[in-house]
């Protein structure tokens, strides 16, 4: 079924009612686009929930540290449970856990996003570059990704981190990015290999489009969905890696992150001492943030791939009956499935 027809060089054509055209990015100005994007977000509960949570975290990262009076200051209230004065209690040395959490959120998110950005950039260059160029460059870049894939990641990070002695934030970001790009480079390479033989890429080669333009303008936009999802998981991975490193004491203890908070809590025997207010908040932050990012990723899949969309009224009526469908022999079953997929 096509949408309305606009080859109306023919006089018998009725004018197309505007409503018949799908709401696409082609219509209207930036306001309409925003409205369309908003409708898209609203269509998936997962996406809306995930985005809301992430917005909350970003707000905290932006505003929180301004509320934190003195996260590192040692107070006189030692190991206090949550109270009016200290919303999340205090550490063994009297630091305010809430203040620490605010500052940690900013640093952890910074590390997560920056490392993911760097890792994604590397994987885009190496994956798409290799996939498109083919030949020797592809062989070499594939080899490189494969080497990085088979190197056990965490031990390498540990080795590098202990060598840099924790070092600066930038070093942490670099180390994480350096060790986490390979898997998504492989995914992107495979996708690029498939896209480069598409007819529209061949057509661009036929009219003599330059290579870099074909990659950036014809291929890259069609991998945006994959890149975004790779980026989302890279953020989660980076935050978890940093937390892991910090927990092992391989991070500069003067930087406050979720991981460092856990490290200090562990060192102070907060767990056995029952000081739950010290280690639960950072742990929960890591878990909830990871879940929120995953929700966004699944939600985007749902919105972008119409086949994953759920039509609730349809499910109620037929699904139950289909589940108890009779055993059919293989060809007929497969034929039915195929037909469904074709649609």
């Amino acid at each position: 079924m096509t949408t309305a027809d606009i080859t109306s060089a023919d006089a018998t054509h009725a004018p197309v009612p505007a409503a018949a055209l799908p709401a696409g990015p082609s219509g209207g100005g930036p306001g309409a686009r925003l409205a369309a994007a908003w409708r898209t977000v609203r269509r998936s509960r997962r996406l809306s929930a995930g985005l809301a949570l992430i917005a909350l975290f970003l707000l905290t990262a932006a505003v929180g540290p301004l509320l934190a009076t003195d996260p590192q200051g040692f107070g006189t209230d030692l190991s206090q449970p949550p109270s009016g004065a200290h919303w999340l209690g205090t550490t063994q040395t009297g630091q305010d856990v809430f203040d620490q959490l605010m500052v940690s959120t900013r640093t952890s998110l910074l590390i997560g996003f920056a490392a993911a950005l760097a890792a994604t950039a590397i994987s885009v260059v190496i994956g798409i570059g290799g996939g498109f160029l083919g030949g020797w460059s592809d062989e070499a870049l594939s080899l490189l990704s494969n080497v990085f894939l088979v190197i056990p990641g965490l031990p390498l990070v540990i080795v590098i981190s202990s060598y840099t002695k924790g070092g600066s934030l930038l070093a942490t970001i670099g180390v994480i990015a350096f060790t986490s790009w390979a898997a998504s480079a492989r995914v992107l390479r495979a996708q690029t290999l498939s896209l480069r033989t598409r007819d529209y890429v061949l057509a661009a080669r036929l009219y003599g489009e330059r290579r870099w333009r074909i990659v950036l303008v014809e291929i890259l936009p069609n991998e945006a969905a994959i890149i975004v999802s790779q980026f989302i998981f890279a953020v989660i991975f980076a935050i978890l890696t940093q937390a892991g490193l910090a927990f092992l004491g391989l991070q500069n203890p003067s930087d406050l992150t979720w991981g460092n908070m856990l490290y200090f809590a562990q060192n102070a025997d907060a767990l056995s001492g029952g000081a739950w207010w010290w280690f639960v908040p950072p742990g929960l932050c890591i878990a909830v943030f990871g879940a929120a990012m995953s929700l966004v990723s699944f939600g985007l899949d749902e919105v972008l791939d119409p086949r994953l969309r759920v039509y609730r009224p349809a499910r109620r009526g037929r699904a139950g009956r289909q589940r108890t469908a009779p055993r059919r022999t293989a060809p007929q079953q497969q034929a039915a499935r195929r037909q469904e997929a074709d649609r």
């Binding site: 469908a325 055993r327 293989a330 060809p331 007929q332 497969q334 195929r338 037909q339």
Partner: peptide, 25 residues
Amino acid sequence: DEEGLRTFRWSRLSLVFQSAMNALN
């Protein structure tokens, strides 16, 4: 019902699709 349909299809009425040749196991 499902049982009835199962015996009905194939023995009374069968189908051949465009893609059926790819549906052989």
